[in-house]
Design a protein around this nucleic acid. Structure first.
Length: 609
RNA sequence: GGUCCGAUAGCUCAACUGGAUAGAGCAUCAGCCUUCUAAGCUGACGGUUCGGGGUUCGAGUCCCUGUCGGAUCACCA
């Protein structure tokens, strides 16, 4: 699957002047050059020149048989005379900069809110599945998961905004040697410690024993090596590893005691995760567990062997040969018959398409270190005859690096998700207090605000970067609440809300119905309207690229543009009632679009801050 | 070694998919609060877009080549 389908009708009924202008230009070109042209380049005008739209005239010189400047002037003149929407133009080299009539912008604003609210899109009537998070159950979530979760959540919202019915899912890797390691260490050293008895979050407690396992294991291995065993042998014979392996075998044989322990410890982890997800503000419509899908995976592999798609080696292991496709051979079942990572992913994919037969695609939000894995997975599914494999897409994102380099659990450089969120919220509180913003705020409102700001900063920081790219997480910078940040945008929203409250108290309505159409706009007002007009385009672009960064950049651009207007143009001291009214309506629209854009990122905006 | 991804201001990132003098934030310096919220606004400083070729009216963007990073190529997940 390459790109999600585009919606015919827009998410928001914004009368983008682009459309009108395009058709006027088309008409002009047809008349001037006696030829239909529909692939001309219309782009936003550079800040330094007057105008909102620029027609690139170089490619048109072939038709006009004139130089670029001459061509631009010809078209510009025609548009001013004939179109009724172009007020004036200027020509720089081969670029035709167009200034639209203010009425065009005013109509756009009026029509946006013709029904009181921005109109949401009608459903596409299509379903799509987005997988994200998908943790192992042996340790708590970390910074990498945060990027993953925020990304998955936001992409889901963006697809929803484009008309899809979205199913959010994850696959929980609840089974395997990793959880058995924690179980082994807990059995040996746990002394019946529980989340309740220790006061620790369940996922952190289980993670603690995973670390304990590693410590004990290393000690045992080096002791054995000192006794003269070769390294490989020592690693196999370490008693704690033997215990973990035995537990895995017993688990597969459904040994009641082992299953019981497994359930208990996974239960602790789920409780911990639940709390973390809640704080993060993400959720899922359906959960898949590896323990429930790997058997189906095994069946499918056996089927593949029967069909001759896979082959079995003498030692009993099952393989797929992908060398004709330019890849390697890949193991699908171990010689002892147990499944590997790929096996369960095959099962999971098939199960999902059985559960949701109508989905138009499945999106896997997984780090880019697994690109090869997914290439192989989709290829295998195709070989098994599942045509929907074409609709599977790996939403691959870059790793989050620390200033010190890569996160490594063994070196203790992992940034814990819970800790980080708490730090961000604490920082938000500290800075809010320093600014003295809490005077007439209730305790409950303040608490809510700190979380909103702290998480807003964190989410925005992780989402503003193109997902495909690796990014650096600098704790000092991420904690910034000024500049290109979530709180900057939240602040702009709160600021506008204060204006709207004042307007309301003065009896000025933000409804757009009786907006005056005859006034001259300030340059900064035109700029704001121009940014508003592209919201819908950006929502589409974000879906096409699976990139919340598009929305993050847009929200910032809008907030910045509004702040310039805010600084330059007084509102309540305006004596012309039409202009005063217009500025209130404009402010309302900006606040509304900011709120919606931030919502697509999973970020809330406050009424006051 | 094969495959894939990346390299843009001191740092972190943009650049509407081939368009104008490559833009923001942070950092540094200088201004703006008796006014609708200064978490803001306005300036200044900062660039051989990794090097070298090519394609064309026009290249950070496309092609070739070199350098340097990273990922991946497990009977780990």
């Amino acid at each position: 699957m390459k790109q999600p389908e585009q919606v015919a009708s827009p998410f928001l009924k914004i009368m983008n002047p682009d459309k009108r202008l395009r058709s006027e230009i088309q008409k002009a070109l047809a008349l001037l050059f006696a030829q239909a042209v529909d692939n001309f380049q219309l782009q936003p005008t550079n800040q330094e020149f007057e105008g909102s739209h620029t027609l690139v005239c170089f490619p048109l010189t072939k038709l006009s048989r004139k130089n670029p400047e001459e061509t631009a002037r010809l078209i510009g003149e025609h548009l001013v005379q004939q179109s009724g929407i172009v007020a004036r133009y200027n020509v720089v080299k081969g670029f035709l900069n167009l200034v639209l009539n203010d009425a065009v912008w005013l109509e756009m604003l009026r029509d946006m809110y013709a029904k009181g609210e921005l109109e949401e899109l009608p459903s596409l009537g299509k379903e799509i599945m987005v997988e994200y998070s998908s943790p192992n159950t042996n340790k708590p979530l970390h910074l990498g998961h945060l990027r993953n979760n925020f990304l998955g959540w936001s992409v889901s919202e963006i697809l929803r905004a484009n008309g899809y019915n979205v199913h959010r899912v994850q696959i929980i890797n609840d089974r395997g040697i990793h959880i058995c390691k924690s179980m082994a260490a807990w059995t040996l050293y746990g002394d019946n410690e529980t989340p309740r008895s220790s006061g620790m979050k369940g996922d952190h407690l289980v993670g603690k024993y995973y670390v304990e396992f590693d410590k004990a294991y290393k000690a045992q291995v080096s002791a054995l090596i000192e006794k003269g065993l070769p390294k490989e042998e020592a690693e196999k014979q370490a008693p704690i590893m033997q215990l973990a392996s035995e537990m895995l075998r017993k688990w597969e044989q459904k040994d009641p005691e082992t299953i019981e322990l497994w359930k208990t410890m996974n239960g602790w982890v789920y409780e911990g995760f639940e709390e973390t997800y809640k704080k993060m503000g993400v959720g899922f419509d359906k959960l898949y567990y590896e323990s429930e899908t790997y058997l189906l995976g095994k069946e499918e592999v056996e089927k593949g062997v029967a069909q001759g798609v896979f082959f079995r080696k003498e030692d009993g292991s099952v393989w797929v040969d992908l060398t004709p496709d330019g890849l390697d051979q890949k193991v699908l079942l171990r010689s002892d018959g147990t499944s590997v990572y790929m096996t369960q992913d095959i099962g999971t994919a098939i199960l999902r398409f059985r559960d949701f037969p109508n989905i138009a695609g499945q999106i896997y939000t997984v780090g880019n270190e697994q690109e090869y894995h997914f290439k192989v997975l989709f290829l295998i599914l195709r070989k098994l005859g599942y045509t929907w494999a074409e609709q599977c897409y790996h939403l691959s994102y870059g790793m989050v690096d620390l200033p010190t380099g890569k996160m490594k659990s063994r070196e203790g450089t992992v940034v814990d998700a819970d800790d980080l969120m708490l730090e961000m919220i604490a920082e938000a509180e500290k800075q809010t207090r320093e600014l003295g913003k809490l005077e007439d705020m209730s305790g409950a409102e303040a608490t809510k605000l700190f979380a909103m700001i702290g998480l807003g900063a964190l989410k925005f920081f992780l989402l503003k970067v193109d997902p495909k790219k690796r990014m650096l997480f600098d704790p000092n910078e991420s904690i910034q609440l000024q500049g290109f940040t979530g709180p900057f945008i939240q602040y702009t929203h709160a600021r506008i809300k204060a204006i709207l409250r004042k307007a309301e108290s003065q009896g000025i309505s933000a409804a757009s119905k009786d907006l005056g159409m005859n006034m001259t706009l300030e340059p900064s007002e035109r700029e704001v309207l121009s940014v508003l007009s592209v919201f819908e385009n950006r929502i589409r672009e974000a879906a096409r690229e699976y990139s919340p960064a598009v929305i993050a950049n847009y929200a910032y651009e809008l907030a910045k543009e509004y702040n310039q207007f805010y600084q330059n143009v007084p509102i309540f001291s305006e004596t012309d009632p039409d202009k005063l009214k217009f500025r209130i309506v404009l402010s309302h629209a900006v606040a509304d679009v900011i709120r919606r854009a931030m919502h697509l990122l999973g970020i809330d905006v406050p009424e006051r801050m």
